[in-house]
Design a protein around this nucleic acid. Structure first.
Length: 576
RNA sequence: CGGGGUGUGGCUCAGUUUGGUUAGAGCACCGGUUUUGGGAACCGGGGGUCGGAGGUUCGAAUCCUCUCACCCCGACCA
């Protein structure tokens, strides 16, 4: 491709709408343009990146026996009503009607459709396992789309579904997918981790997220410094501290006028926050109240609490709502003598002794409180948000925290969808059974953005060669000079012949502009054809990632460049 | 949905508080001359009616009302 013919409008300044680096650079490099909030057009360079990622995904899906299909973007309501998700999904699912008033949705995912697809014809255990996948546009009407491709409303996703006859088959499919995902993200040149994850609305039990490590990520990842435990903070757990060995003291009410928050209590009574137990009041359902006991320095993990309460419809009791519950004394709520609330205690309380709680009386706290002596706990649970410095749940190590971008997630789903549809097969033993399903997704457009988050510098993007829009840019600094034109054309032609993807910068532009654009767009290798090195019989090659410069004799240039590209490719290759 | 903010040429932004000549700058674009290895210089040029609608006024980018879009924080979520 010749740059002079390429539609790649680069920008010197980033548009004001962009916040994160991937969004800014995608816009500046002329790879995407916004159409509406969270909706983008891919320009030629951007689309080439997407297609490269898709191709890697295809190869790895096919390798583990996946078969590619293509389902529609638009889906009829009835399949969603069968699983109940028509109501569960909420406004995130974009709904529309056709001219006859029939209800449809833009597919936010395709579990329903694929189950409905196979159930009539996938009747025998002999046909199992089966894995189907597609690369398709999805639409989720995000409350707040942001960060360009990182959190769009319309996005490209690979989704795969396995239909298995039994748990062992499911685990094998899952394990294959795990391997395929590892290969995919490795081949894309990403630094990632597979972490334990919440299953949320999709359902199922076992699930892992593939997370690209990057500061701008929206997921907090906790990982062990000693073993390979890694989990999203939504579900991370921790091993409890050793039980306190303090002698139990009798409790005592003390005056704490105007002292409400944990920080204030800690200062006023001169006790560490870790010896305070706070009582958080959540309202859920119609007007039910849950009092959640948690160590003073902790935060509640509302993801865990949601699972416990069995609803997402709950919130911390807010301002005026306190008036509805006169028995609750705002700022001084405590478990001792508390009435009218479901008491949930974080299991960490169980190892604490002689702690401080609110006295359910304005301006007073109780010190030296102990479970069993001063109040009873019926419901112990893990409701805390685990943080860096906590102990690893699986070994003696300590947990560290980092941010990550979720680019893929795999689920052992079970029979949720097959049960809902009555989607069954006949097993070896003649019994009719529901398929055991797995579902496996990769955010393709998000993967492209996360690669930029992880690989960029002040000058622009640094694409891993496997997903770069072109592998080499050939910068002919003065294309209007016959000698340079001739050399540039020859190198470009030679690279094409060797199946090296090259972009010839034949524009009549200043050298500075060509360098800047090439750095910005992020081609892994720059070949520089200019008067300075031609004079000495050489051409110059720059590695974008390292800034390393090499000179090759003109007559060997094509071979040497091709050799360099092939070596770079191989650094991301995996053995078969 | 709650809170905050922004809409002025393709992009970045000034002008709005205190209404008053033909609405400005840089970048980008077009023509020319000179340049030519890190977003070149000079000369000349085209392009906006100030997000939209309505209103106030002799006069509105500027004031008022309504409305739309976009961005940020939060709730929600892969």
């Amino acid at each position: 491709m010749r740059f002079s013919e390429l539609y790649a409008p680069t920008l010197k300044e980033s548009p004001a709408e962009a916040e994160v680096i991937s969004h800014k650079l995608l816009l500046r490099a002329g790879m995407i343009r916004k159409v509406a909030a969270g909706v983008y057009t891919f320009l030629p360079l951007g689309y080439r990146v997407i297609r490269k990622i898709e191709q890697i995904i295809r190869e790895e899906m096919n390798r583990v026996g996946g078969q590619e299909i293509l389902m529609p973007v638009i889906q009829p309501a009835d399949v969603w009503k069968q699983t109940g998700r028509w109501d569960q999904y909420g406004p995130e699912m974009m709904r529309l009607e056709d001219r006859h008033g029939r209800e449809f949705a833009l597919g936010p995912t395709h579990e329903e459709l694929v189950t409905a697809l196979v159930m009539d014809e996938l009747r025998s255990y002999r046909q199992l396992p089966l894995t189907l996948y597609q690369i398709q546009v999805k639409f989720r009407d995000e409350i707040r789309p942001r960060f360009g491709l990182m959190r769009g409303r319309e996005f490209i996703m690979k989704d795969a579904y396995s239909f298995n006859a039994n748990i062992e088959q499911l685990q094998a499919s899952y394990s294959n997918m795990y391997d395929a995902y590892s290969r995919i993200f490795t081949r894309c040149g990403l630094n990632f981790r597979a972490i334990q994850a919440a299953t949320g609305l999709i359902g199922g039990k076992v699930s892992q997220e593939f997370t690209v490590l990057a500061e701008s990520g929206e997921t907090t990842v906790l990982y062990c410094d000693a073993c390979n435990y890694a989990a999203s903070d939504e579900i991370a757990t921790t091993r409890l501290p050793e039980p306190s060995t303090e002698a139990i003291k009798p409790s005592e009410v003390v005056d704490t006028p105007g002292v409400k928050s944990v920080t204030e209590v800690s200062t006023f009574l001169n006790v560490p926050e870790t010896k305070i137990v706070k009582t958080l009041i959540y309202k859920y359902g119609a007007r039910e109240i849950a009092a959640v006991l948690i160590r003073g320095d902790r935060d509640v993990n509302e993801e865990k609490l949601s699972a416990l309460l069995g609803t997402t419809d709950f919130h911390l009791l807010a301002g005026i709502e306190w008036g509805d519950y006169p028995e609750l004394v705002q700022g001084y709520v405590g478990p001792v003598g508390l009435k009218g609330a479901r008491l949930i205690a974080d299991n960490e309380i169980s190892v604490m002794r002689n702690f401080v709680v609110g006295a359910n009386k304005t301006g007073a706290h109780i010190i030296s409180v102990n479970v069993g002596d001063d109040f009873q706990v019926q419901e112990w649970a893990d409701v805390k948000l685990v943080k860096a410095g906590d102990r690893c749940p699986e070994c003696d190590g300590t947990l560290l925290a980092t941010r990550g971008i979720e680019v893929g997630q795999i689920f052992q789903l079970g029979t949720k969808y097959s049960d809902a549809f009555g989607a069954t097969f006949v097993d070896e033993d003649g019994e009719v059974k529901p398929y055991i399903m797995g579902t496996y997704g990769i955010g393709v457009s998000r993967t492209a953005a996360s690669a930029i988050e992880q690989h960029h510098d002040d000058n622009g993007i640094i694409w891993p060669i496997s997903i770069a829009p072109y592998e080499v840019s050939v910068l002919v600094l003065n294309y209007d000079r016959e000698e340079q034109k001739e050399i540039g054309d020859r190198i470009y032609g030679g690279l094409e012949e060797r199946d090296i993807e090259a972009l010839l910068d034949d524009r009549i532009e200043s050298a500075g502009k060509k360098f800047a654009d090439s750095d910005l767009v992020g081609f892994p290798l720059q070949v520089i054809v200019g008067a300075r090195t031609i004079k000495s019989g050489n051409i110059e090659v720059k590695v974008r990632a390292t800034g390393e410069r090499m000179e090759f004799p003109l007559e060997q240039a094509v071979d040497k460049i091709a050799g360099t590209v092939i070596r770079m490719r191989e650094s991301l290759k995996l053995e078969a």
